[in-house]
Amino acid sequence: MENPSKESLQKLLRLIGELCEIEENHWFKESLASMLSVNYEFENFPEFLKHQKNQFRLKGKSFYESIGDVKLKKELVGDYIEMSWYQSINNLDRFMLFAFYQMENLLNHYITISNAYEKIDKNKDYYTHQYKSNFIVLVYDSFFYNNKKKSIDKINIWAKLTFWMKDSDNVKWEQLNHRNISNLISVRNANSHRNSNSKNEYVVNTIETLKKLDISSLGFYYNVLRKVLESYKDVNPNVKVYEVSTSKTKLQGPKQVGYVDLSKIKK
């Protein structure tokens, strides 16, 4: 093949650049990046970073391939990329923060497609849940104010989680993963108040402990995202009225799966 002139190659580069800017050609851009990265030693850190994030993007798009909402998928994949990047550099504080963003976004979408407001309005008591003797979530009070719907961004994260676990029949699963979910929420709360003294010792110890553990310990947080995502397949927007027993039952504390007892970690 005859080598094209420099001018021809410059025109080709401009054309490729324009093609890569078109949203529908994102596959072309990714394929081109993957092809050019073969046997590349990444001596240039910015190029290495681009390659890494491109790989995380591919994984994120695969993880969220079932999401049909374009805007939602873009946000989820973007946060998946950031989560994966911070995991790769062992910044577990930011890793958990971006995992939380995805969890809340997934819960928000579940609320939207499941007809949550009407279900809660018809079942005020059913969607109330007691996690501990001093921790009771009144879902109705978080979703409504003066009998009017609250904006979804104003709803407490525990109320969103409680509605999801009861509506999707995942109460037992939540009990098994309660500590992992609670960790995500605690880290998010600490980060949202980073200029205050709210970053308590428990959060700091949790992050520092996770930094020392192997990568499998982080799989529990990916599983939280996967579980909410999988619940979309069985979502039912139809409203059912539940009869709620007023008799008191003995409260069982949440069981833990994959929970690391910080008191047993040697310092």
Rank of each mutant, 00 (worst) to 15 (best):
Lys59Leu: 15
Ser88Pro: 00
Ile81Ser: 06
Ile67Lys: 03
Asp93Pro: 00
Val77Asn: 06
Ile89Ser: 00
Trp85Gln: 09
Asn90Arg: 12
Leu92Met: 07
Asn54Gln: 10
Arg57Tyr: 11
Pro46His: 11
Phe95Val: 00
Tyr40Ser: 13
Phe98Lys: 09
Met83Phe: 02
Tyr86Asp: 01
Ser84Ala: 15
Glu43Phe: 06
Lys53Ala: 00
Tyr80Val: 01
Ser62Thr: 13
Lys61Trp: 08
Lys74Gly: 06
Ser62Leu: 14
Gln52His: 07
Val77Trp: 09
Leu49Glu: 06
Leu36Arg: 11
Asn44Leu: 06
Ser84Arg: 13
Lys73Leu: 08
Gln87Tyr: 02
Val70Pro: 11
Asn91Asp: 13
Ile67Ser: 02
Phe42Asn: 15
Ile81Tyr: 04
Pro46Ala: 11
Glu65Tyr: 05
Lys74Asp: 13
Glu65Val: 07
Phe45Gly: 02
Gln102Cys: 14
Ser84Tyr: 08
Gln102Trp: 05
Phe100Pro: 03
Leu58Tyr: 04
Phe63Asn: 07
Tyr80Arg: 06
Gln52Asp: 08
Met83Ala: 15
Gly68Ile: 11
Leu92Pro: 01
Phe56Ile: 01
Val70Phe: 10
Asp79Gly: 01
Met83Glu: 05
Ile81Ala: 06
Ser88Ala: 10
Phe98Thr: 10
Leu36Tyr: 14
Tyr64Lys: 01
Glu75Tyr: 09
Leu76Ala: 03
Phe42Cys: 10
Ser84Gly: 04
Tyr80Leu: 04
Trp85Ile: 04
Lys59Trp: 09
Glu47Arg: 01
Phe95Ala: 00
Tyr86His: 12
Glu82Tyr: 04
Ile67Gln: 02
Asp69Phe: 07
Glu43Tyr: 07
Gln52Phe: 06
Tyr86Asn: 12
Asn90Asp: 10
Trp85Thr: 10
Phe56Tyr: 15
Arg57Met: 10
Leu92Gly: 01
Leu72Ser: 02
Val70Tyr: 09
Gln87Asp: 01
Leu49Asp: 04
Lys59Gln: 15
Pro46Gly: 10
Asn44Pro: 00
Lys74Ser: 13
Leu58Ala: 09
Asp79Cys: 06
His51Trp: 14
Lys59Ser: 15
Leu72Trp: 07
Ile67Tyr: 03
Arg57Val: 04
Gly68Leu: 13
Lys73Phe: 04
Leu76Met: 03
Pro46Val: 11
Glu41His: 10
Asp79Tyr: 09
Glu75Met: 12
Tyr64Ala: 02
Phe56His: 12
Asp69Val: 07
Tyr80Met: 01
Glu43Gln: 11
Ile81Lys: 07
Lys50Trp: 03
Lys71Thr: 13
Phe95Pro: 00
Glu43Met: 05
Glu82Ile: 09
Val77Glu: 06
Phe56Arg: 04
Glu47Lys: 07
Tyr86Lys: 02
Asp79Glu: 08
Gly60Ser: 07
Glu43Ala: 05
Phe63Glu: 12
Leu97Val: 14
Ile81Arg: 11
Lys74Ala: 11
Gly68Asn: 15
Leu72Ala: 04
Ser37Leu: 02
Asn39Lys: 14
Tyr40Met: 04
Ala99Gly: 12
